[in-house]
Design a binder for these strands. Structure first.
Length: 263
DNA sequence: ATGGTGGCCCGGCCA
């Protein structure tokens, strides 16, 4: 089973790239972030034509998340329950597998804009709500994978120039603590389960030729529950779409799980 | 030290 995440920064603009990528990398589920389109503009037919189904939570102009999958998405949940928020940042769904149901979550965590700003406070409140909800979700669904744009580089090795970024939004200590509080529920950063190239990043600013200089951050993550992590045999960042014409500023992250056959 | 680019929708927000 292959699971992937990609912040595509407008599905309208990036749809051809997403379809091309899916056909070259026929993953079981692809979590998308920053659709930037309302629900009635989601291009479902384009996905069904290539053998996928989808569930989504869209909104006009900003945010928006989806799960594109090869099998039916069950028990769909939009947003964090009991967290009053009109921004569409969460969609969760259940996929059947040989080892039982697997809960898949596509997450677009707030950016935070600048340390100390209103948006930064919202980011920390949002992370606390995510943690509280995931705690129960992990009890209901022990086999859980939450993939997305976390807008947090967990460690200095995830930052191209840690000295330049120290204390900044995306790397500040409260943000890293919020991210670690999620991991402490019993989730593992799949990418760091394996040996990886140095200076591995998933996002590069559009400005100042950041991709050419590999001036990036690793802020897109695949988190696996304890019941899933031992099935994971690889987790890789696919940098190639970042070199496309009209690229997203993010690139896909792909985790491969080898599940035993049902007995 | 500032502003650089890109997507939204068409001046300014958000990333």
């Amino acid at each position: 089973m292959k699971l992937a995440t990609w912040n595509i920064n407008s599905l309208k603009v990036r749809l051809p790239q997403v379809l091309d990528w899916l056909q070259a990398h026929p993953v079981d589920a692809l979590c998308l972030q920053e659709l930037k389109l309302p629900d009635d503009k989601f291009p479902l037919e384009a996905f069904t034509e290539i053998g996928y189904t989808a569930q989504w939570a869209g909104q006009k102009t900003y945010n928006g998340v989806a799960i594109v999958a090869r099998q039916e998405c069950l028990e769909v949940q939009r947003n964090i329950p009991d967290f009053d928020d009109h921004q569409q940042r969460i969609i969760a769904s259940t996929l059947a597998s040989p080892i039982g149901d697997i809960r898949i979550i596509s997450a677009y965590c707030p950016n935070g804009q600048a340390v100390g700003s209103d948006k930064y406070e919202y980011k920390l409140r949002w992370y606390a709500a995510l943690r509280d909800w995931l705690q129960g979700e992990l009890q209901r669904y022990p086999r859980l994978a939450i993939l997305g744009d976390y807008n947090v580089a967990p460690k200095d090795e995830d930052v191209h120039d840690p000295a330049k970024w120290v204390g900044d939004v995306l790397v500040s200590e409260p943000e890293r603590a919020a991210f670690n509080a999620v991991l402490d529920l019993g989730l593992t950063d799949a990418f760091r389960q394996f040996e990886q190239p140095e200076k591995s990043f998933s996002w590069w600013d559009y400005r100042r030729m950041a991709f050419r200089r590999n001036a990036g951050l690793r802020i897109d993550h695949v988190l696996l529950s304890d019941a899933l992590r031992d099935y994971c045999v690889s987790c890789v960042i696919d940098k190639t779409p970042r070199a496309n014409e009209q690229p997203s500023d993010h690139t896909p992250v792909v985790a491969t799980l080898v599940l035993p056959q049902a007995s």
